[in-house]
């Protein structure tokens, strides 16, 4: 009995406000308090989503959007992690020279670059991926260099004096001790990549979730506008959750002192 009671209490605290919010929203729409021309009721949104789910358009747009975000993110990881390791660890003087440039570039507003990317790369897939790459490389790069700086030099010395090879040093000492930072950086990057995907698609695309929304706005398809927003919220939540879960499973034993939230 108490178990059920506990579960209900926890469920109430976990999502009671969300459920109440949705109920109030539905109520406002059904009673006509919220004008139908501006606000789609939750029931209508679910119905719209249901239709999109079965005619395959939801699948099509999600796949194209996710693949864009993933490509940008994967490229950023492939470039950012090694570069961050190099900057933070092996080449201290290299860091002193190139660091200011990178810190300056990290502050670039990506929208200022968007037109330039369009100019240089055309309006195809590449400019969108380039933009996502551009914004998602900085967290990963910075955290990788922080991570490598957090490696305990005593451990490195011990491993060296025990005669470990460079590869063992990297695999057994450097990567595990900087893993917490790396994962924090990867989570931030993945979030940023998905975050940036939407405006990139809004500004020039013919498919994808961002396009779905901007097209709904232009054509004043209110239920579709809300449905698209909901899908993006769900994907954003899932991506964040996935990375938090991975972080907890893989590096839960080591909490970074200054992990970025």
């Amino acid at each position: 009995m108490t178990a059920i009671h506990d579960f209900l209490t926890r469920a109430f605290y976990k999502c009671g406000s969300l459920v109440l919010f949705v109920l109030l929203w539905q109520l406002a729409c059904s009673t006509g308090l919220a004008p139908e021309t501006f606000v789609a009721s939750p029931a209508v949104i679910v119905k719209t989503l249901w239709i999109y789910l079965w005619d395959g358009s939801l699948y099509k747009h999600s796949v194209i959007s996710l693949s864009r975000a993933f490509t940008g993110f994967a490229l950023a990881t492939l470039v950012g992690v090694p570069l961050g390791f190099l900057l933070g660890g092996w080449f201290k003087s290299f860091e002193r020279i190139i660091g200011p440039l990178l810190y300056f570039l990290a502050q670039f507003n990506p929208f200022a670059l968007f037109s330039v990317f369009l100019l240089l790369f055309g309006i195809g897939e590449f400019s969108k991926v380039a933009m996502i790459f551009w914004v998602s490389i900085w967290p990963v790069l910075y955290n990788a260099s922080l991570g490598i700086r957090s490696v305990d030099p005593a451990q490195v010395k011990v491993a060296r004096s025990l005669g470990s090879s460079k590869f063992t040093l990297l695999w057994k000492i450097v990567i595990p001790s900087s893993a917490a930072y790396l994962f924090a950086g990867l989570r931030l990057s993945a979030g940023t990549a998905f975050f940036m995907l939407i405006p990139a698609e809004m500004m020039g695309a013919s498919r994808g979730l961002g396009w779905l929304i901007i097209n709904a706005q232009v054509n004043y398809l209110i239920p579709r506008l809300y449905a698209g927003t909901l899908v993006i919220v769900i994907f954003g939540f899932l991506i964040d959750y996935l990375f938090r879960f991975l972080e907890w499973r893989l590096v839960g034993w080591k909490r970074p002192e200054a992990a970025l939230s």
Binding site: C15, L18, F194, F195, Y226, T229, I232, F237
Partner: peptide, 17 residues
């Protein structure tokens, strides 16, 4: 939970709204 979800909403989606 309501706050966390609201903060998670991509602001670009909110712009049309």
């Amino acid at each position: 939970s309501l706050f966390k979800v609201s903060a998670l909403v991509n602001p670009y989606c909110l712009f049309p709204l």
